[in-house]
Structures are given as C-alpha cells and as structure tokens.
Simulated scan of single mutants.
Amino acid sequence: MPETPPTVVILTALALEYTAVRAHIRDRVEHVRPEDGTRVEIGRLAGTPWSVALAELGEGVANAAATTTQLLTWLRPQAVLFVGIAGSLKSDVAIGDVVVGTKVYGIHGGKWTPEGLLARPEAWRASHALVQAARSAVRDMTDVRPHFKPIASGDVVLADARSEIARQLRAHYDDAAAIEMEGSGAAHAAHLNGQVHALVVRGISDLADAGKSGTDATGSQERAAARAAEVAMAVLRKHGPRDATTGTAAPGTASGAEEPSRGGDHIDFSHGTFHGPVVGKITGRP
C-alpha cells in the first residue's frame, strides 16, 4: 500500500486568492467530501514532500470556522494556512506588503455601555514553528516587504478610516497591522483541533480607507494575493512535515528545486485519509 504523503491545507476566501495559490500546485486532483459536498484540489508543491489540499471557502468568519473544521476532520493535515488579501491598518504597511499574522484578533467581542464599547478581545496565536519558518523564508525574498504583526479579523469590510469601527480598532487593537474577514474563524478551528499548526498570510491590497474601491480597480487585489501565495509557498519549503515515527519536524527545503520523480511524476491519493471520490483531474502543469 502506498504511503499517504503528509498534508497541509491552504484556505482561501476569494476566487482570485485561490487562483494565486493554485498556480504553485502541481498534479492537482479534485476530491469531494461525501458527507457535505465540500471540495478541495489536492496536489503537490515541487521541492517538498507536502501534499497540498487547496480550498475556496467564501467570505466570513463563521463560514471559515465551520468549513475549516470540516476540512481538518476529513483530511487530518499537519498544518493549515489561510492565504489571501487584507487592508492595511498602519501607515508603514503599504499596498503590496505581506503581513504574517503572529496572532489573529476576533474583533467583534464586547459590551456596549453609555461610555462606548468595552472590548472583550479574543486572540489566537500563530504556530511558533510556522512563524519561524516564515521569518527564515522571507530573508531571501528581496522583493517582499514583510511584517510580522497581529491581524484583526471580523465580518466587516473597512473602507472608511474615520468610521466608528476604525476608531475601535485603534483604541483596542492598536498593534494590528491588517484587517480581514476569515482568519479568526480558521484560527479558532485550528485551536480547537489541537493537533495542527496554523498561520495566516495576507498580502496588502488596500489601505482600508475611502480609496479602497479605486485601489482595487488597479489590480491591487490580484497582485497582493500573488505575493501572499509566494510567501506561503516559501514557508512550506522551510517547514518540514513531522516524522511519522518520531513525531518531530523534518528540516524544510530552502532551495525550491524539483523533487525526484515518483512513479512518473504522480502521487497516488487512492489510499489513506482522502475518502472522497475523484471527480476531475488536471494533468497539465500550472
């Protein structure tokens, strides 16, 4: 029986984010979870032993939490990454930069009083191992301007820097460098799982202000998604899977070189944890 390769799940919310990550994944095969119809494409990242399961979840914290839980139960990955775009909350975090979330805030907890909102923040810290892999990876990425900072996450699109929610972010989440809509849901699901490394990687596509629509129209979202995907792939080349016998992490591969061919450049996913029927196979390279 062929050995099932170690798995990492990469989550995206938007189609353009999915496309950016998909461009890096080879030999993709679509799988369907019979219980609920959840679909992923499973392929490989060249130069690594990882089997990569790529999912497009749609927008929103609750949706991200529920679907991430389903995927973790189904695929039993060693790591989960949420990769996509975000708005900047800091003057020194520019469009095109990448924020690696050292922790993710759930921003909607609180109590409204006559004095205003008394915040009751929730936060989930990123995997230390994945943050360390990211710090190592970006040192050699001279075209990437990275920030290792917290990320704010909630069901809101921020397009007004003078809004009440913007003021609340500055008052209660002042260290957050970016805002997005799904990371806290995925991070919470990973935390409850207890056995999986988790990391959020976001490319900055706008400044979370009144100019957002005009900035998006320039193609900034596609460029930011591509940059986040590049960083995520570099992280996986640094972060090796746990050894099945010892439970320790193997060293990653920094070179990004092609891995040796496995039986005609194909991985057999017919055994192991991927029980959904194969409904389509992409044989070409991205």
Rank of each mutant, 00 (worst) to 15 (best):
A159C: 08
G263K: 12
F269L: 14
A210N: 06
T273W: 13
A178S: 10
I95V: 15
H172P: 13
Q78C: 07
Q221T: 14
A161E: 03
V157G: 13
A190F: 06
H128R: 10
V131Q: 06
G256W: 01
A225K: 03
H239D: 08
I42T: 07
G185K: 02
G247C: 02
L57M: 15
D206K: 11
A249P: 10
G276S: 10
E35Q: 13
G58E: 09
V157I: 15
M181V: 07
H191F: 15
A137G: 06
Y173I: 03
A176H: 04
N193A: 09
A250Q: 11
G280V: 04
G110C: 05
D27Y: 06
T69C: 03
I179P: 03
A178L: 11
Y105C: 06
L89V: 01
G106R: 12
R135D: 01
F274H: 07
T19E: 15
V52H: 08
D27V: 02
A210E: 12
R28T: 08
G284I: 04
T38I: 09
W74H: 01
A166K: 13
A62K: 13
P77A: 09
A137F: 04
P5I: 03
L75I: 13
P49R: 10
H128E: 08
D265K: 13
E30I: 03
Q132D: 10
E180D: 05
G84F: 01
P121V: 05
I95C: 11
R39C: 00
E222H: 02
T245R: 14
L81Y: 11
H147K: 00
P251A: 00
T48S: 05
E3T: 15
G256F: 04
A177P: 05
S153C: 03
A224Q: 11
D268T: 09
G284H: 12
A53K: 03
A94N: 12
G60F: 07
I165N: 13
V40G: 00
G203F: 01
T113H: 04
A13Q: 09
R26I: 06
A23Y: 00
D174H: 10
H239G: 00
Y18D: 11
S127F: 01
E3W: 11
Q132A: 10
S205K: 02
T73A: 06
G106K: 07
H271I: 10
I165V: 12
W112K: 12
D206N: 12
A198M: 12
P5T: 02
V131A: 03
L81A: 09
R28P: 01
R44C: 08
K90Q: 15
A119C: 07
R167I: 04
G272R: 09
G211H: 07
H31T: 05
E35K: 14
R22Q: 14
M1K: 07
G214C: 11
E3V: 15
Q78S: 00
L45C: 04
L236M: 14
A244S: 11
A189C: 07
L14Y: 00
K111G: 00
R237I: 00
E164T: 12
D143S: 10
R223S: 13
V21I: 13
A161V: 03
